[in-house]
């Protein structure tokens, strides 16, 4: 189910820029369902990790106040064309996903 993540990594001048979009509802747990009046249970990504050739380059902890369908961009030194980039996330319901891409 690696369809929840879109990732793009580009290397230029020794610095790699990684941009990722994750499809996720990011429910805070305090929103109400308008029809039933019941709270919508919290459902948000807690951890995101990105690895370059198996070595972590960023490690994020997120709360419910990160926007729906979260966006993440960061840069790291090193990385060249065709190196592998792996991004994975895990949410508070134990769901997770990951994707592997190549630096362009």
């Amino acid at each position: 189910m690696a369809k929840s993540i879109k990732i793009r990594a580009k290397s230029k001048g020794g610095i790699t820029t990684v941009k990722a979009l994750i499809t996720h509802p990011m429910e805070t747990g305090l929103r109400k369902n308008k029809k039933t009046g019941k709270l919508i249970p919290a459902h948000f990504i807690q951890e995101v990790v990105c690895k370059h050739n198996g070595k972590p380059v960023i490690n994020c902890e997120w709360g419910g106040s990160v926007s729906k369908n979260p966006y993440l961009a960061f840069k790291f030194k090193g990385g060249k064309k065709d190196d592998s980039i792996e991004l994975s996330w895990k949410d508070n319901m134990g769901k997770s996903d990951s994707i592997t891409a190549k630096i362009r």
Binding site: G63, F74, G78
Partner: peptide
């Protein structure tokens, strides 16, 4: 002003530039 102010923590290993972007709810 959010009821729980903490939104995100980014841990950056050596070699990762201190330059991150994301989107938050306010």
């Amino acid at each position: 002003k959010n009821s729980t102010p903490l939104s995100a923590v980014f841990h950056l290993p050596k070699g990762t530039l201190p330059d991150v972007s994301t989107r938050v709810k306010m």
